[in-house]
Design a protein around this nucleic acid. Structure first.
Lengths: 202, 202
DNA sequence: TCCCAAATGGAAGTCCACTGTCAATATTTG
DNA sequence: CAAATATTGACAGTGGACTTCCATTTGGGA
């Protein structure tokens, strides 16, 4: 499940239409982006494909960049980790979470994750956006670690740990994408995350 | 020393002038960027400040982004690590390098590093560029680790380690910049890098 | 059913990065 | 010094993201 349903009143026709349009625009945008690249695709083309005017496009998305979402798996991960017992080491807690609902989530969104990641990894213009997301992930992770250890989230040690964790995540996802998603992402985590808990023995 | 002097024939007036101009443009660009931000500064303004026409600007720099240099400390680090004894664990090797010429280099470029880092950290448009640099750093680091351990640089384990290292570097530099460079960067490395070698004990 | 507010399309317009051309000027070379 | 060559400025584009405005359409409530 990708979208957070806000507890839902019957939702009139108008709203439903808007939602449809929003989805359609995104779908077409992604299609064009993967076909021709992000930069090479103009807003006009997206608008045409989605059968709206370009002014309407900007009513839905403040900028072209905003079409590219990022439904934050890492914050979701942070959330999942929160549910784990406090004594458990952080790496174990993460791996534990992956076996639960989070793993299912990953499987479900596999296609779209693959697509989006490939885009943000390859298209320079999208990277900036991605970096911002990554920072949020780092902060979220730092907060979880802080909660679990009674330290401050701003503690340099904690920030470093969070950064290292997210960096490994990213590396694994990148590897996974490079292999067209054929490998099992969860297995990659299980195999390589312990590197950080046992220490770099190089 | 920031620029690599190519072994130098007497270098005519024409060349000397070009070099001057190049420097002037960059200097003015940086000044304007820090004053008003990267996006908010137009090429015309830079050209005016540097007293050239905007067409000349583009003769010197293919794109506006290209004005922002990045003299790659991390690859330099990789180089320094190469000089260390092979048996030494990677983290120790890095810390060892910092005490040598690399440390001096950091001190020397302190101001400009501070300036540039602040820029690339705060200005979304510059991040993309930065990310590319970071990837190069990761690859360079991965290669060093590979050399020292007889593994492949493409080994996932190696890539993860390199990514984690660079991530911690970045975190430390960011912290350093946030504190206006008042702390001792080398000391930060010494204090926090061991986190990775002893393992995340959270 | 009728009216209002919201959503849309269309067109014209702004801003800025970047390109192409050409004539003027500066440097080099012989 | 003169001819050849390189560098520059001025100027007029182009393309694409984003804005503004207004007339039209559409959905929702009375």
């Amino acid at each position: 499940m990708t979208t957070h349903e806000t507890s839902t009143a019957p939702l009139g026709l108008r709203e439903r239409k808007k939602q449809k349009t929003r989805e359609r625009v995104r779908r077409e945008a992604y299609r064009l982006f993967t076909e021709h690249g992000y930069e090479a695709t103009t807003v006009d083309q997206i608008a045409d494909a989605a059968e709206i005017s370009s002014s309407t496009f900007f009513r839905y998305f403040p900028t072209k960049e905003d079409v590219v979402i990022q439904d934050e798996y890492d914050p979701a991960l942070a959330e999942a980790v929160r549910a784990r017992p406090t004594g458990e080491p952080i790496v174990d807690a993460i791996l534990g979470s992956l076996k639960g609902s989070l793993g299912a989530m990953l499987q479900q969104d596999r296609e779209s994750l693959l697509l989006r990641t490939r885009l943000t990894l390859n298209d320079p213009a999208l990277r900036a956006r991605n970096v911002a997301e990554q920072e949020r992930s780092e902060r979220a992770m730092a907060e979880v670690i802080a909660e679990r250890t009674g330290r401050e989230a701003t503690d340099l040690e904690v920030r470093c740990a969070a950064a290292a964790l997210i960096a490994v995540f990213t590396t694994l996802v990148r590897h996974w994408v490079e292999g067209d998603g054929k490998e099992d992402l969860a297995a990659l985590y299980e195999r390589h995350l312990p590197l950080l808990s046992r220490g770099l023995d190089f």
